[in-house]
Amino acid sequence: MTDASPAQVLRYTAFSADPGGGNPAGVVLDATGLADHEMQAIAAEVGYSETAFLFPGPPPGPTPHKAGRRKDQRTFRVRYFSPEAEVTFCGHATIASAVALAERTGPGDLVFHTPAGTVPVTVTVDGAGRPRATLTSVEPRVEDAAPEVVAEACAALGWKPSELDAALPPRIAYAGARHLVLAAATRERLADLSYDFSRLAGLMRQEDLTTLQLVWRESATTFHVRDPFPVGGVVEDPATGAAAAAFGAYARETGLVPGAAVLTLHQGADMGRPSTLTVELRAGDPRVRVSGTGARI
Protein backbone atom coordinates (compact mmCIF):
# COMPACT_ATOMS: atom_id res chain seq x y z
CA MET A 1 0.00 0.00 0.00
CA THR A 2 1.48 3.37 -1.01
CA ASP A 3 0.48 7.04 -0.88
CA ALA A 4 -0.84 6.62 -4.43
CA SER A 5 -3.23 3.85 -3.41
CA PRO A 6 -6.97 4.43 -2.83
CA ALA A 7 -6.36 4.42 0.93
CA GLN A 8 -3.66 7.07 1.24
CA VAL A 9 -1.22 6.21 4.01
CA LEU A 10 0.58 9.13 5.58
CA ARG A 11 3.63 8.62 7.77
CA TYR A 12 4.19 10.79 10.81
CA THR A 13 6.35 10.59 13.89
CA ALA A 14 4.94 11.44 17.32
CA PHE A 15 6.58 12.87 20.44
CA SER A 16 9.40 14.49 18.47
CA ALA A 17 9.62 17.45 16.10
CA ASP A 18 12.45 15.61 14.30
CA PRO A 19 11.31 13.01 11.73
CA GLY A 20 14.31 10.92 12.83
CA GLY A 21 13.06 10.79 16.43
CA GLY A 22 9.82 9.83 18.10
CA ASN A 23 7.61 6.88 17.21
CA PRO A 24 6.51 6.54 13.57
CA ALA A 25 2.84 5.86 12.85
CA GLY A 26 0.84 5.26 9.73
CA VAL A 27 -2.19 7.52 9.35
CA VAL A 28 -5.15 6.98 7.03
CA LEU A 29 -7.27 10.13 7.30
CA ASP A 30 -10.29 8.62 5.56
CA ALA A 31 -10.66 4.86 5.90
CA THR A 32 -14.28 4.80 4.76
CA GLY A 33 -15.04 1.53 3.01
CA LEU A 34 -12.00 -0.37 4.27
CA ALA A 35 -12.72 -3.83 5.71
CA ASP A 36 -10.97 -5.18 8.79
CA HIS A 37 -8.69 -7.45 6.80
CA GLU A 38 -7.70 -4.57 4.52
CA MET A 39 -6.75 -2.36 7.48
CA GLN A 40 -4.75 -5.21 8.98
CA ALA A 41 -2.95 -5.77 5.68
CA ILE A 42 -2.13 -2.05 5.36
CA ALA A 43 -0.75 -1.94 8.92
CA ALA A 44 1.39 -5.01 8.24
CA GLU A 45 2.75 -3.49 5.04
CA VAL A 46 3.49 -0.12 6.65
CA GLY A 47 5.35 -2.02 9.37
CA TYR A 48 5.17 0.62 12.11
CA SER A 49 4.06 -0.35 15.57
CA GLU A 50 0.64 1.20 14.84
CA THR A 51 -1.38 2.60 11.97
CA ALA A 52 -4.46 4.71 12.73
CA PHE A 53 -7.54 4.54 10.52
CA LEU A 54 -9.90 7.51 10.76
CA PHE A 55 -13.56 7.52 9.80
CA PRO A 56 -14.89 11.10 9.64
CA GLY A 57 -18.00 11.77 11.70
CA PRO A 58 -19.41 10.33 14.91
CA PRO A 59 -19.93 6.57 15.33
CA PRO A 60 -23.22 5.10 14.11
CA GLY A 61 -26.14 5.57 16.46
CA PRO A 62 -28.14 8.42 17.97
CA THR A 63 -26.78 11.91 17.37
CA PRO A 64 -24.59 12.82 20.36
CA HIS A 65 -25.60 15.68 22.61
CA LYS A 66 -23.82 18.81 21.40
CA ALA A 67 -24.36 21.16 24.33
CA GLY A 68 -21.10 22.86 25.24
CA ARG A 69 -19.22 21.52 22.22
CA ARG A 70 -16.96 24.13 20.62
CA LYS A 71 -17.63 24.86 16.96
CA ASP A 72 -14.07 24.05 15.91
CA GLN A 73 -14.24 20.50 17.22
CA ARG A 74 -14.00 17.79 14.58
CA THR A 75 -15.15 14.26 15.22
CA PHE A 76 -13.76 10.94 13.99
CA ARG A 77 -14.14 7.27 14.71
CA VAL A 78 -10.65 5.78 14.97
CA ARG A 79 -9.28 2.25 14.89
CA TYR A 80 -5.67 1.20 15.49
CA PHE A 81 -3.82 -1.77 14.00
CA SER A 82 -0.35 -3.07 14.78
CA PRO A 83 1.33 -5.27 12.15
CA GLU A 84 -0.28 -8.32 13.80
CA ALA A 85 -3.49 -7.26 15.55
CA GLU A 86 -5.97 -4.50 16.31
CA VAL A 87 -5.49 -2.67 19.61
CA THR A 88 -8.05 -0.71 21.61
CA PHE A 89 -6.05 2.51 21.85
CA CYS A 90 -2.72 3.91 20.70
CA GLY A 91 -1.44 7.21 22.03
CA HIS A 92 1.34 7.95 19.56
CA ALA A 93 -0.87 7.23 16.54
CA THR A 94 -3.49 9.55 18.09
CA ILE A 95 -0.91 12.35 18.39
CA ALA A 96 0.33 11.66 14.83
CA SER A 97 -3.22 11.72 13.44
CA ALA A 98 -4.04 14.96 15.23
CA VAL A 99 -0.91 16.63 13.87
CA ALA A 100 -1.72 15.40 10.35
CA LEU A 101 -5.24 16.82 10.61
CA ALA A 102 -4.00 20.14 12.00
CA GLU A 103 -1.61 20.56 9.08
CA ARG A 104 -4.57 20.28 6.73
CA THR A 105 -7.40 22.04 8.56
CA GLY A 106 -5.65 24.07 11.26
CA PRO A 107 -5.21 23.67 15.01
CA GLY A 108 -8.12 23.26 17.39
CA ASP A 109 -10.18 20.62 19.12
CA LEU A 110 -10.85 17.10 17.91
CA VAL A 111 -12.90 14.22 19.26
CA PHE A 112 -11.69 10.66 18.60
CA HIS A 113 -14.15 7.84 19.26
CA THR A 114 -11.85 4.87 19.85
CA PRO A 115 -12.63 1.25 20.81
CA ALA A 116 -11.54 2.20 24.35
CA GLY A 117 -13.84 5.22 24.56
CA THR A 118 -13.97 8.89 23.65
CA VAL A 119 -10.60 10.69 23.58
CA PRO A 120 -10.60 14.49 23.18
CA VAL A 121 -7.51 15.92 21.48
CA THR A 122 -6.38 19.54 21.23
CA VAL A 123 -3.75 20.78 18.79
CA THR A 124 -1.90 24.05 19.28
CA VAL A 125 1.01 25.66 17.42
CA ASP A 126 4.08 27.02 19.21
CA GLY A 127 6.04 30.15 18.40
CA ALA A 128 8.19 28.25 15.91
CA GLY A 129 5.11 27.03 14.05
CA ARG A 130 5.37 23.47 15.31
CA PRO A 131 2.15 21.62 16.11
CA ARG A 132 1.69 20.10 19.57
CA ALA A 133 -1.14 17.70 20.37
CA THR A 134 -2.61 16.86 23.76
CA LEU A 135 -4.86 13.84 24.25
CA THR A 136 -7.10 13.30 27.25
CA SER A 137 -7.33 9.63 28.20
CA VAL A 138 -10.37 7.62 29.06
CA GLU A 139 -10.81 7.17 32.81
CA PRO A 140 -7.83 5.12 34.02
CA ARG A 141 -7.56 2.39 36.60
CA VAL A 142 -4.69 0.70 38.43
CA GLU A 143 -4.65 -2.80 39.89
CA ASP A 144 -2.21 -5.06 41.70
CA ALA A 145 0.02 -7.26 39.58
CA ALA A 146 0.01 -10.91 40.67
CA PRO A 147 3.42 -12.01 41.99
CA GLU A 148 3.55 -14.88 39.49
CA VAL A 149 2.95 -12.44 36.61
CA VAL A 150 5.75 -10.18 37.83
CA ALA A 151 8.06 -13.18 38.27
CA GLU A 152 7.36 -14.45 34.76
CA ALA A 153 7.83 -10.99 33.24
CA CYS A 154 11.18 -10.62 35.01
CA ALA A 155 12.24 -14.08 33.85
CA ALA A 156 11.36 -13.22 30.24
CA LEU A 157 13.25 -9.92 30.54
CA GLY A 158 16.23 -11.52 32.25
CA TRP A 159 15.82 -9.19 35.23
CA LYS A 160 16.65 -10.29 38.77
CA PRO A 161 14.19 -9.31 41.52
CA SER A 162 17.03 -7.35 43.14
CA GLU A 163 17.21 -5.17 40.02
CA LEU A 164 13.71 -3.76 40.59
CA ASP A 165 13.16 -0.46 42.40
CA ALA A 166 11.32 -1.39 45.59
CA ALA A 167 9.98 2.15 45.91
CA LEU A 168 7.96 1.78 42.70
CA PRO A 169 5.81 -1.33 43.13
CA PRO A 170 4.72 -3.40 40.10
CA ARG A 171 1.19 -2.63 38.99
CA ILE A 172 -1.06 -3.10 35.97
CA ALA A 173 -2.26 0.30 34.77
CA TYR A 174 -4.93 1.10 32.21
CA ALA A 175 -5.79 4.29 30.33
CA GLY A 176 -7.22 2.77 27.16
CA ALA A 177 -4.94 -0.28 27.12
CA ARG A 178 -3.37 -2.48 29.83
CA HIS A 179 0.33 -2.13 30.71
CA LEU A 180 2.44 -3.87 33.33
CA VAL A 181 4.58 -1.23 35.07
CA LEU A 182 7.98 -2.48 36.27
CA ALA A 183 10.60 -0.11 37.68
CA ALA A 184 14.32 -0.69 37.24
CA ALA A 185 16.60 0.23 40.13
CA THR A 186 19.26 1.70 37.80
CA ARG A 187 19.48 3.42 34.43
CA GLU A 188 21.97 0.74 33.38
CA ARG A 189 19.42 -2.02 33.97
CA LEU A 190 16.86 -0.17 31.85
CA ALA A 191 19.37 0.47 29.08
CA ASP A 192 20.32 -3.21 28.80
CA LEU A 193 17.12 -4.58 27.26
CA SER A 194 17.37 -8.02 25.68
CA TYR A 195 14.41 -10.29 26.27
CA ASP A 196 12.77 -13.56 25.28
CA PHE A 197 10.34 -12.34 22.63
CA SER A 198 8.10 -15.42 22.48
CA ARG A 199 8.02 -15.94 26.24
CA LEU A 200 7.08 -12.34 26.99
CA ALA A 201 4.49 -12.29 24.18
CA GLY A 202 2.87 -15.41 25.63
CA LEU A 203 2.58 -13.83 29.07
CA MET A 204 1.20 -10.61 27.65
CA ARG A 205 -1.48 -12.40 25.65
CA GLN A 206 -2.43 -14.38 28.74
CA GLU A 207 -2.77 -11.20 30.82
CA ASP A 208 -4.20 -8.99 28.03
CA LEU A 209 -1.25 -6.58 28.18
CA THR A 210 -0.44 -4.21 25.34
CA THR A 211 3.09 -3.29 26.45
CA LEU A 212 5.34 -3.46 29.46
CA GLN A 213 6.07 0.01 30.82
CA LEU A 214 9.65 -0.32 32.07
CA VAL A 215 10.62 2.72 34.13
CA TRP A 216 13.63 4.31 35.79
CA ARG A 217 13.06 7.35 38.00
CA GLU A 218 15.60 10.13 37.45
CA SER A 219 13.87 12.66 39.72
CA ALA A 220 10.51 13.34 41.32
CA THR A 221 8.95 14.30 37.97
CA THR A 222 11.36 12.92 35.35
CA PHE A 223 11.35 9.29 34.22
CA HIS A 224 13.03 7.22 31.53
CA VAL A 225 10.85 4.49 30.02
CA ARG A 226 11.01 1.61 27.54
CA ASP A 227 8.11 -0.41 26.15
CA PRO A 228 8.48 -3.93 24.73
CA PHE A 229 5.57 -4.66 22.36
CA PRO A 230 5.96 -8.29 21.19
CA VAL A 231 2.18 -8.89 21.00
CA GLY A 232 2.12 -6.37 18.15
CA GLY A 233 5.03 -8.02 16.39
CA VAL A 234 7.35 -5.18 17.47
CA VAL A 235 10.39 -5.57 19.74
CA GLU A 236 10.07 -2.11 21.26
CA ASP A 237 8.19 1.17 20.92
CA PRO A 238 10.27 4.39 20.87
CA ALA A 239 7.34 6.39 22.32
CA THR A 240 4.14 5.00 23.83
CA GLY A 241 1.39 7.50 24.58
CA ALA A 242 -1.09 4.97 25.93
CA ALA A 243 1.50 3.65 28.38
CA ALA A 244 2.42 7.21 29.35
CA ALA A 245 -1.21 7.90 30.24
CA ALA A 246 -1.37 4.65 32.20
CA PHE A 247 1.85 5.56 33.99
CA GLY A 248 0.41 8.92 34.99
CA ALA A 249 -2.47 7.11 36.67
CA TYR A 250 0.00 4.70 38.29
CA ALA A 251 2.15 7.55 39.65
CA ARG A 252 -0.85 9.23 41.21
CA GLU A 253 -2.38 5.99 42.55
CA THR A 254 0.85 4.87 44.21
CA GLY A 255 1.54 8.29 45.73
CA LEU A 256 4.68 9.01 43.70
CA VAL A 257 3.23 12.41 42.78
CA PRO A 258 0.43 14.61 44.12
CA GLY A 259 -3.00 14.84 42.53
CA ALA A 260 -1.83 17.68 40.29
CA ALA A 261 1.54 17.22 38.60
CA VAL A 262 3.39 17.45 35.30
CA LEU A 263 5.75 14.59 34.48
CA THR A 264 8.36 14.29 31.74
CA LEU A 265 8.97 10.87 30.22
CA HIS A 266 12.03 10.26 28.06
CA GLN A 267 11.78 7.28 25.74
CA GLY A 268 13.49 5.97 22.61
CA ALA A 269 17.00 7.27 23.33
CA ASP A 270 18.32 3.72 23.72
CA MET A 271 16.92 2.95 20.26
CA GLY A 272 18.32 6.05 18.58
CA ARG A 273 14.87 7.67 18.30
CA PRO A 274 14.66 10.06 21.27
CA SER A 275 11.15 11.05 22.32
CA THR A 276 9.69 13.35 24.96
CA LEU A 277 6.24 12.78 26.42
CA THR A 278 4.58 15.24 28.80
CA VAL A 279 2.07 13.77 31.25
CA GLU A 280 -0.30 16.09 33.09
CA LEU A 281 -2.43 15.21 36.10
CA ARG A 282 -5.11 17.63 37.25
CA ALA A 283 -6.65 17.80 40.71
CA GLY A 284 -10.19 16.47 40.74
CA ASP A 285 -9.97 14.94 37.26
CA PRO A 286 -9.07 11.23 37.07
CA ARG A 287 -8.21 11.42 33.38
CA VAL A 288 -4.62 11.85 32.23
CA ARG A 289 -3.37 14.24 29.57
CA VAL A 290 -0.44 13.31 27.35
CA SER A 291 1.21 15.86 25.07
CA GLY A 292 3.84 15.84 22.37
CA THR A 293 4.99 17.28 19.12
CA GLY A 294 4.87 15.53 15.76
CA ALA A 295 6.29 15.75 12.26
CA ARG A 296 5.71 14.23 8.85
CA ILE A 297 8.28 11.65 7.84
Rank of each mutant, 00 (worst) to 15 (best):
A220H: 13
G176D: 10
A283D: 08
Y195R: 05
R226K: 04
V257G: 07
R282E: 07
A269K: 10
S194Y: 01
L212Y: 13
T211Y: 02
Q213A: 14
S219D: 14
R199W: 02
F247N: 00
G255N: 09
P228T: 05
L203H: 03
E236Q: 10
R217V: 00
T240Y: 10
P258S: 11
P228L: 03
S291F: 03
D208F: 12
A183P: 07
F223K: 00
A261P: 05
L190P: 04
S198V: 12
A184Q: 07
S219A: 12
L190F: 12
M204S: 04
H179C: 09
R289H: 03
G233R: 14
A201Y: 12
E218M: 08
H266M: 06
L180Q: 09
F223D: 09
G202Y: 07
H266Q: 06
F229H: 09
A201L: 09
V262K: 14
V225G: 01
L200D: 10
T254N: 00
T240V: 14
E253Q: 13
G268E: 00
A242C: 13
V257R: 08
L212A: 09
A177F: 06
F247P: 04
G202E: 10
A185C: 06
H179N: 12
G268V: 04
L281W: 00
R287K: 15
V181F: 07
L277P: 01
G259W: 03
H224Q: 10
R199V: 02
P286Q: 04
G284I: 09
A260Y: 02
L200R: 05
E218A: 14
G233E: 14
H179S: 10
L190E: 12
S219F: 06
A243M: 08
V235C: 04
A283K: 02
D237W: 05
V231S: 04
A239I: 03
P230L: 08
V234W: 01
R273N: 00
